[in-house]
Nucleic acid binder design. Structure first.
Lengths: 220, 220
DNA sequence: TTCTTATATATTGCATACATTATAAACTAC
DNA sequence: GTAGTTTATAATGTATGCAATATATAAGAA
């Protein structure tokens, strides 16, 4: 019986990876608050490992913009500026729109379209039941499906980083999702199906731009 | 006499930062060839430091896509796929175009426009004298000026990473620059001056898309 | 011979001790 | 009392030793 390789991999995570994932989660969900001091020795004992893997994880989080390092002074969680919604979402929109455009040009299979529709149906249910965190997660997954299809890691990597930042903004009450997204998703899927790259691009961008504007109007 | 803060900073770089910058440079300019094995102990002695800062630098390079790590086996320089030009440039174009759009909407000062024109003049000279590496560097600097003006680190960070990858592709003879860019830059500057966001966006995108197409046509 | 199993080796991963740096407190000189 | 200097402390940065892992080699049994 052939065992899929991918199944074996997650079995053993290195201490560094565990530390990274745990700290990132804590920063995103607010367990570790913005500007909170991160003493590596303290974190090491808390995570049951030595300082080395903790420091390595902190440096990666620093590269991702979740942690600020001041050599010889302190390491701390970065601040959360709610106004950053207006900085991130346009970039996320541009990248996701580019992916949609590329996928549309390449052409798609029927089963891929079916996957998207299924995910959008789940998304609609989550919105309807006002489970907004689940909705955000499903929205991410829907766009990630498209990005994986684009097979462009230069899009996929920054997008996955931005999604993490968006999740943190969500936990700090900076983002809202509405039923309007369900309609937009369906339009997006239809344009992919019709290989209409221009519309696919436009709709994807509109999807996040609208969210940005909703944020802006709420804060006025 | 007030000494500018920024002047003091580069004076002392940590061993990790020195290792990172040196290794990145070596990977970009081909001193360290694609797929070359990177033994951290070896690199440590070569750089006159211990394994720790070297390993930290390698992990950052891994996050940036310059290094591949296979735990317990080997660490090596990532491969260079010349076809990646067609993956990176559209993304770089999309991000730089977004920056140009934002700057255009915000409005610009006369001195900023003057800076851009000066840089483009240098760029034109470099192209004319067929100093293509200098030209690439000046092109980067021109677009970086615009990106700094946009004040959006979610654009600036991935772009600076992509520029590093593009420089590596240049050293592996995957990219060419032509005098056409000089004309496009001038059009871009004019559209920024006129606060024409749409044109600024379109020109910036065209600037790299054309380079991509030139690459594609050369490889056929 | 061929497949299996030990074993040796090389590499990365982790833990810990030490060095360096930056800040704040205490102390001295004026 | 205040300014400047010294000293103490706490944090990060670096070096080194050891552990764990993966691969290749060699040995042994079928």
């Amino acid at each position: 019986m052939p065992i899929p390789k991918d199944f074996m991999k997650p079995a053993r995570l290195s201490a560094k990876e565990r530390a990274f994932l745990q700290l990132q989660e804590w920063i995103i969900d607010g367990t570790l608050q913005p500007l909170e001091k991160l003493n590596d020795a303290e974190l090491a004992t808390a995570l049951g490992v030595s300082r080395t893997p903790v420091r390595e994880a902190l440096q990666l989080l620093n590269a991702q913009g979740f942690v600020e390092m001041h050599p010889g002074v302190a390491t701390q969680v970065t601040a959360v500026n709610n106004a950053d919604v207006e900085k991130i979402l346009p970039v996320l929109a541009a990248l996701q729109a580019l992916a949609a455009e590329e996928v549309s040009q390449k052409g798609v299979t029927a089963s891929f379209i079916q996957q998207l529709r299924a995910k959008n149906a789940e998304f609609a249910l989550a919105i309807e039941s006002q489970n907004f965190y689940l909705a955000l997660k499903l929205d991410d997954e829907l766009h990630t499906l498209i990005i994986q299809e684009a097979e462009n890691e230069y899009i996929a990597n920054p997008v996955s980083n931005f999604q993490a930042h968006v999740r943190r903004l969500f936990f700090h009450n900076s983002i809202i999702l509405t039923a309007q997204s369900v309609v937009e998703h369906e339009k997006l899927i239809a344009s992919l199906e019709a290989q209409d790259a221009e519309t696919a691009h436009a709709i994807t961008k509109q999807n996040w731009v609208r969210a940005t504007e909703e944020y802006a109007s709420r804060t006025k």
